[in-house]
Design a binder for these strands. Structure first.
Lengths: 213, 213
DNA sequence: CTTTTAATGGCAGGGACTGCCACAAAGACG
DNA sequence: CGTCTTTGTGGCAGTCCCTGCCATTAAAAG
């Protein structure tokens, strides 16, 4: 018997749908273009048509790939959150969180710079801020799964959900703080300090005693 | 000497500006109308003109009072958050949080019902969800002020900010849980259970040990 | 090549907002 | 009282975000 699962494409006619991975890469590329435009001219002054032209697609397909203009920043911000998710998932039971963060919490420097720029611009752009918050919330189930495993509780347990949301909030607050801490030089010790601080707060949250009976 | 502060209106000419309080009441009234329409017809099917007519104002003034269509739900949701802020502020040092919540965490039942309905609808309405999350975030400085006072730390201390965000997140998660827990009968014991659960999670968060040196 | 399915692009249109201006409301001052 | 000054409201035109629809193209299988 075959070990490969049947994806239903055996003898299938017609053009195959694009891979989910391809779609993600494409959205990310457009996102980078959009953020560049947003940074240069501001969000309100950047039109959907400009984004589409910069990305080399028609406006129609742009609106198929993104629900709103502001949500064009989402894939880029996701790079940052995905990096953190990777940290949580690869966190060995024994390791010290600070050390692990230092080793595993990495991403392309130019993406990091762009992410921090978006976070800064989200202060005066409510639409962008909303995307940032919604994106953070969407990451919570993943956090809950990781935390639940660590605590030996189901991922939909209320305590686990609350704690996942708390971890999420800590990550957001500290990311904001990093973005606003003299953003001129993110490659300096600020990043390390940010990571240490994050590790410290997360340890406090994850070492919380279980709920009383 | 006079004790009343000079508001600069002495001998002032022209029509006096509308009170902030009046503006808030007006926005809340429109918000109730908008939510009623959203519940009846859905958000996408409700037009700005309809909201304006239902509220008895011109469309032009509607857009002066609300940035976007979805943000019309904000003042109503604020009722819920303001109630919690009131709880935090009036929380005596000695009292047990659960008891205090039970006594002070109250609001008009019809508003509560509408708030829970909006929270439920926010699951499939990204715009509404965004308003809910942004509103929650805007409450964090208030939480930070209250927590900072309790911990004897400045309100802009990073640890205080993180903890305020965690409290905020717990409130949001539990509100969501309440909204989805068989919303047919919010007047039953569900509400009390929600409050107890909230008190429990908040106690865990607020009793966190201070950061290690 | 034909058939079939998926993706794109162009076009028309609705509706959310905004800038602008005229006008009404509400007070101070003569 | 009328006049002046400031503030809020309504109406209108216009821009742009975004959607539904259809024709066209791309990529496979037969």
């Amino acid at each position: 018997m075959s070990t490969a699962p049947d994806d239903g494409s055996a003898g299938r006619r017609g053009r195959p749908p694009v891979t989910e991975e391809e779609r993600r890469r494409r959205r990310l590329e457009i996102s980078r273009q959009a953020v560049a435009l947003f940074r240069e001219h501001g969000v309100a002054e950047t039109t959907g048509e400009q984004i589409a032209r910069a990305a080399g697609v028609s406006e129609r397909t742009l609106w198929r790939l993104f629900r709103t203009k502001e949500s064009c920043v989402e894939p880029l911000l996701s790079v940052s959150l995905d990096a953190f998710v990777h940290v949580l998932r690869s966190w060995p039971e024994s390791a010290e969180l600070g050390e692990h963060l230092r080793a595993a919490y990495v991403m392309p420097p130019e993406d990091l710079e762009a992410v921090l720029a978006v976070v800064r611009m989200s202060r005066d752009e409510p639409g962008v801020r909303a995307v940032w918050l919604v994106l953070h919330e969407r990451a919570e189930p993943v956090f809950a799964a990781a935390l639940g495993q660590r605590l030996g509780l189901p991922a939909d347990d209320l305590t686990v959900l609350v704690r996942a949301a708390a971890v999420n909030a800590a990550l957001r607050v500290l990311s904001d703080a990093l973005a606003w801490s003299d953003g001129a030089d993110p490659s300096s010790g600020m990043l390390d300090e940010h990571r240490d601080r994050l590790a410290e707060e997360l340890r406090a949250l994850t070492e919380l005693p279980a709920r009383r009976p």
